[in-house]
């Protein structure tokens, strides 16, 4: 079965992104496919390359990256939501004349159309939210 995961929750402040990660792992472990993980609203903060944690805690962005690498996952961050909140890749940094960029490797920025598209491709769409 093909799944699409939509993440609207940011790491740290709410549990939703953690739940989404565990669910995605369980989907893959059961032998199903994940067509795409789409990060929207505050969920875009899962795509930061600059999260730092004490040694006994794990960084959610790093865990998404590791999972994506292992399973060749498509991690898409909504570009409009991300740019407004200050998550940019090199291309967007140049477009907006920023000297720095912070989108983690393994994530890509794309439009909300990718959310619609992934719903069309999937047998099941599962959304993980924070607190609206």
């Amino acid at each position: 079965m093909i799944f699409s995961i939509i993440v609207q929750a940011p790491p740290v402040q709410s549990q939703g992104a953690e739940t989404a990660l565990r669910f995605t792992r369980a989907v893959l472990a059961a032998g199903h496919q994940v067509h795409r993980v789409f990060f929207y609203r505050d969920g875009i903060h899962n795509g930061t390359d600059l999260a730092s944690h004490p040694q006994d805690e794990s960084s959610l962005p790093a865990q998404w990256q590791a999972l994506a690498q292992e399973h060749n996952l498509d991690l898409v961050v909504c570009i409009a939501a991300a740019v407004r909140r200050g998550i940019v890749n090199e291309g967007e940094a140049k477009r907006y004349h920023h000297e720095h960029w912070n989108l983690a490797p393994g994530f890509e920025l794309s439009g909300l159309g990718q959310l619609v598209d992934t719903c069309l491709q999937a047998d099941r769409v599962v959304t993980f939210g924070g607190r609206s």
Partner: peptide, 19 residues
């Protein structure tokens, strides 16, 4: 458990999230 959560999503036609 998480595996059971995945099975529930498969055993139902769709998922509606309330948050």
């Amino acid at each position: 458990d998480d595996t059971g959560f995945v099975e529930l999503t498969i055993n139902h036609d769709k998922v509606v999230s309330w948050f």
